[in-house]
Design a protein around this nucleic acid. Structure first.
Lengths: 134, 134
DNA sequence: CGGTATCCCTCCTGATACTG
DNA sequence: CAGTATCAGGAGGGATACCG
C-alpha cells in the first residue's frame, strides 16, 4: 500500500511536533474549517451567507476561521469597495485540492458512523456499572 | 438512530450540530487519535510502545485517547493477565477502514504543505506592518 | 508494565455589544 | 454588511506523582 511507503520513508515524520502534517491535522480538527471549506466548494460565499449557511457560528469565530484559512492559502478574500460593503470568499486552487480528501473522510463517516454509534452504546453499557464478568 | 437516517440521506446535514459526522471530525481532530491509528495500522502495539513510538504524549492523555478509540469501536484492547502485565492494542476492522481516508489526508499534507507554509509567510509578511498598498 | 489521580493552564469557542 | 472588542466558560492537553 502506498500508505505504508510514505510511512516507511518518514517513519517518525508525522509524530514530530514540528512536522507540517501535524499542522494540517490541527487545521482539519478545528470546529468550523471543514464546514467552511465544503461550503465554499459549492460556490463563492459572502460573509453573511456563510454565517447563515453554516449556522451556529458567531461572527468572531467565523472571522477567525476565515483568516486562518486565508493565511494558509486555502481561501481567497475579495473585498469590493462598494456601498454597501461586499466581501466574497472563495476557495483557491490549493483549497480545492483538499476537498477530495476531506470529502473522503466525510463519506467514511456517513457510511460507518452507525457502527461507531453502536460501538459506543455497547461500550457504555458494558462499563456503566462496572466491567465485572457480567 | 434517527439522526443517522437523516444523515445518511442528507450529506449537507454535516452542518447540524447533532450530526454524528460532526463528531467524527471531532475525533479525527483531536491531537493524538490519528497518530495512534496510523501506528496501530502498522502493527499491534503495547501501551509503552505507543508512548515511545509517538513521543510527547503523556500516559494520561494516551489512555484517554485509546479509551475514546476503543469506545468508538476503532481499537481493541487485549489484556493478558501475566506477570509482568501486558496489554496490546490493535485496530478493529472498523479501525482499518478509516486508515485510507486518513492516509489520503496525510498524503495531501505531505504534498501541499510547502505551499501552505509559503502562503503563511506571504500572509504574515503582508500583514506584519500593515497592509498598505504595497 | 500499564495505568490513575491531581493540579494547572492555555486555547478554543461563544455571548454580547459596538463600529467603519 | 462585515466585521472588531471584550469578557467568560469549558474542554483538551500537559507535568508530576502515585498505585495494582
Amino acid at each position: 500500500m502506498r500508505i505504508m511507503e510514505a510511512e516507511a520513508r518518514r517513519p517518525g515524520d508525522i509524530n514530530d511536533p514540528d512536522c507540517p502534517t501535524r499542522r494540517l491535522i490541527d487545521r482539519v480538527g478545528d470546529k468550523w474549517s471543514v464546514l467552511v471549506i465544503l461550503r465554499l466548494f459549492e460556490r463563492t460565499h459572502r460573509f453573511s451567507e456563510l454565517r447563515t449557511a453554516i449556522g451556529g457560528v458567531t461572527p468572531k469565530v467565523l472571522t477567525h476561521t476565515l483568516r486562518a484559512l486565508e493565511r494558509d492559502g486555502l481561501v481567497e478574500r475579495h473585498v469590493y469597495a462598494e456601498v454597501p460593503p461586499r466581501v466574497e470568499y472563495r476557495l483557491t486552487g490549493l483549497g480545492h485540492s483538499i476537498v477530495a480528501p476531506l470529502a473522503a473522510l466525510r463519506d467514511w463517516a456517513e457510511e460507518h458512523i452507525p457502527q461507531v454509534v453502536q460501538a459506543r452504546e455497547r461500550y457504555d453499557a458494558a462499563h456503566a456499572k462496572g466491567p465485572e464478568g457480567e
